[in-house]
Amino acid sequence: MIELEQVAYSYGDSELFSDVSLTLQPGSFHFLTGPSGSGKTTFLKLCYGELLPTAGHLRLFGSDVRALTRDGIAEMRRRVGVVHQDCGFLDHLPIADNIALPLSVAGQSPASEQENLAELLNWVGLRARAGALPPELSGGERQRAALARAVIMSPDVILADEPTGNIDWEMSQRLLQLLVELNKMGKTVMIATHDLGLIRAAKAQVSARVLRISDRRLQLAGADL
């Protein structure tokens, strides 16, 4: 699905990480940890083509990111659902339209997907809030809505950046539940987080690998996690 081969990334002169090699197998579950500023968000951005590696090779669904055309990038992104750290909603659109945005930009009429959308809203428990604008939602509601938008295209891969950022323990358990469910449906999941409790809770339910960015390298975290 996603293959990295000796990938490095630097903003200008400051190198975040280098020599990163990793393959995300279909159906796998990964956590990505590391101190704040270590490059977790940057790593995910590489994985959906928002950034290009400064060295090494990155293949998404078999094609080198550097060889993708702009339309090719757009099509690739329909197969990768992303929960952004800041959610990335359009504040002037009701939350239901925000969730359906990937459908409409792909030219699929959301009208014909109404049932799907309603089901999805139910799944994340936002049915009653469908008409609310994003700023009117609570932190947990926003995170669940972001997850709903990430999965509406039935992507093969789900990348979640701090999906439990500023929500309480119970709510983060619910979100983890949803992600685990998706993984059991065969989706590849990668979650960037520094919430160790979340990682422990997940390990009780699925076999997850924990990766850690430290000293500018990507390492497999020890068994203590």
């Binding site: 959906y48 928002e50 702009r70 339309d71 757009a74 099509e75 992104r77 329909r78 992303v82 952004h84 990335g88 909603f89 359009l90 945005l101 990937p102 930009v105 792909a106 938008r149 295209m153």
Partner: peptide, 9 residues
């Protein structure tokens, strides 16, 4: 945002 959720140019 549109670009990130898969909109073509």
């Amino acid at each position: 945002v549109m670009r990130l959720v898969g909109a073509k140019d």
